[in-house]
Design a protein around this nucleic acid. Structure first.
Lengths: 184, 184
DNA sequence: GTCTATAGTACGATAGAC
DNA sequence: GTCTATCGTACTATAGAC
């Protein structure tokens, strides 16, 4: 169940890769199938339509987010620090799914967008619970959002944008710690 | 020169509207022309190709950003506060151009992306100059990025996402002020 | 400066062999 | 479970009338 790299997962990986590297428009059925090493007919056996393919991505997002949320809730340095740390692009499976989903979240209205909104709501709830102050919690949430925004803008697997390139994570975490402790 | 609402500007407005409302894929030549009230042939007279149309958006972004940067540099409450305030979605012309551009910045590699990166670099330079501390400047920059990320995710002209809906701008500005003054 | 008509390509999806 | 072949549509862009 775990070692079997099914064609289904290969196809979702290919979809993510195309969304991350080249954007929504590049994620055609032909391109996804080719990148996964199957034919278009093979793709359409696993996902009967393009909408079904995107549903698959939304499901993966929910699964990975649920697992990540447990780690966030029990992080030694607290949910806020975990959230900001993990918002830096590191090309993890969750990173890839999140960025891919964010590039679909407005255009494919229904499932990806809703999954994305739910994930973000659960993050905010944990941070607010830890921090207490709504304004500070909002600022921390926005810093993480900003990190993902840079990752999304960066595009390729090794973003090198203006801000993203020379990122001082330790300094940033120190700022977040002060925000969390109410000294800001 | 100012009062003349040329077809060229109408077309760029239509392009922005489609990108904001329905995403990159909806911004076809047919749709842009129809929304601007001209035929496809009319569009292609002003912008001989789709790339030229996107170039036009990049040019508008640079023009509006240059004007906004002067306001930011001379803002009474300082560049950081101006930046955070103006990062909240208010459906201004600049807001619309920025969100439209961000939805193209990864897929149309060349001109929109470069214009966007240049604009962000100039913002960061002003903030760093004011704040001094790189980590605090980065945090402020990221908060603004996060606000725009929410606007981009929000999609329509009246975003109502998890965080975007109940935004406490005053509280946020207070946090930013403390960051700027080094007390965080 | 704006239109219609159309060429050529790429897309999503179906049908049916294997 | 994966393939090839194909249909109908939508896209970018060109040609040429007005």
């Amino acid at each position: 169940m775990v070692l079997v790299m099914s064609a289904r997962e290969d196809l979702l990986d290919a979809l993510e890769g195309l969304l991350i590297d080249d954007g929504e428009r590049a994620a055609t059925l032909d391109a996804v199938a080719a990148r996964a090493g199957v034919s278009k007919g093979g793709l359409l056996y696993h996902f009967p339509s393009k909408a079904a393919l995107f549903d698959g991505l939304a499901g993966r997002l929910r699964d990975l987010a649920a697992a990540d949320l447990e780690l966030m809730a029990t992080a030694p340095d607290g949910p806020s620090a975990y959230y900001v740390r993990s918002s830096v692009w590191e090309d993890t499976a969750f990173d890839r799914t999140l960025v891919a989903a964010s590039r679909l979240s407005w255009t494919e209205d229904a499932p990806v967008r809703r999954a994305f909104a739910d994930v973000r709501a659960s993050w905010l709830a944990l941070i607010l619970e830890e921090v207490g102050d709504p304004a500070a919690a909002e600022a921390i949430m926005l810093i993480g959002d900003g990190l993902y925004y840079n990752a999304v803008l960066g595009g390729s697997s090794a973003p090198d944008g203006t801000v993203a390139g020379s990122r001082d994570l330790d300094g940033l975490l120190a700022v977040v710690a002060r925000l969390r402790e109410g000294r800001a």
